[in-house]
Simulated scan of single mutants.
Amino acid sequence: MSDPEPCRMKHTEDPEEQRDLMKVKEESEELNEVKEESEELSEVKKEREELSEVKEESEELSEVKEEREELSEVKEESEELSEVKEESEELSEVKKEREELSEVEEESEDLSEVKEESEELSEVKEEREELSEVKEESEELSEVKEESEELSEVKKEREELSEVKEESEDLKVKEESEGLSEVKEEREDLSEVKEEREDLSEVKEESEDLSEVEECEEMREVKEESEEIREVKEESEGQ
């Protein structure tokens, strides 16, 4: 017969060991849960950091968009100003042309008046010639003295008329020469205006080229900033 006490001792120690093992298992599970929670928290932190970085990038992009919109508005305003300048130049040219036309009309009126005066003089000549013919016919019946006197008077009148003709011709020549000189000056002014227009067009083209270059530089700077932001992200993720 064997002693039953040692078997009983073994049976009595087993449940305590099992309890200890159960406690150890529970503690290990709790530790695992704590580790998982810490890992989840770290992941959440990373996600929050990424979200903050994304927000910053979106804000930077919005600022870039606003700057681009402002640049577009500035461009539109500059274009409107250039159009207004062109319209003002065209108006000034129209005014000059009107002034030139008014001067030409005045010159034509003066010439028409001179023509009318010359026609009136010619009519006076004809009338005087007719009168002289009548006088001659009447003088044939009168004395020789009266004929000589009337002839002398007619000669004087003719001389006066010739002088008047010469004066009118001189006036015509002077007015025509003055008109030609004014036309030459107007043509020179018009050529200068054309040259100024060409210079203005060249200046506009240069300003447009400069604006395009500035836009390209701004786009490059924005690209470089975005690349730097990406590099910083990659470094933070690697850490």
Score class of each variant (00 low, 15 high):
78 S>L: 00
68 R>W: 06
99 E>G: 04
65 K>Y: 00
133 E>N: 04
46 K>C: 06
41 L>Y: 10
108 S>R: 12
104 V>N: 03
77 E>T: 13
70 E>I: 02
128 R>W: 11
119 E>W: 04
141 L>A: 11
56 E>T: 15
75 K>R: 06
122 S>H: 10
76 E>T: 12
100 E>W: 12
90 E>Q: 08
87 E>W: 01
100 E>H: 08
89 E>V: 08
96 K>Y: 10
59 E>N: 07
43 E>P: 05
66 E>N: 03
110 D>E: 15
107 E>Q: 14
125 K>D: 00
139 E>T: 09
75 K>N: 06
94 V>S: 05
117 E>I: 02
133 E>F: 06
87 E>L: 06
81 L>G: 01
98 R>D: 00
114 V>K: 06
94 V>A: 09
98 R>E: 00
90 E>D: 08
138 S>T: 15
42 S>C: 07
78 S>N: 05
58 S>V: 12
92 S>L: 15
121 L>F: 13
52 S>N: 02
55 K>T: 02
49 E>F: 03
138 S>M: 11
80 E>H: 07
82 S>I: 00
80 E>A: 12
116 E>A: 03
91 L>P: 03
117 E>T: 11
106 E>K: 09
76 E>S: 06
84 V>Y: 05
110 D>F: 13
67 E>F: 00
90 E>K: 08
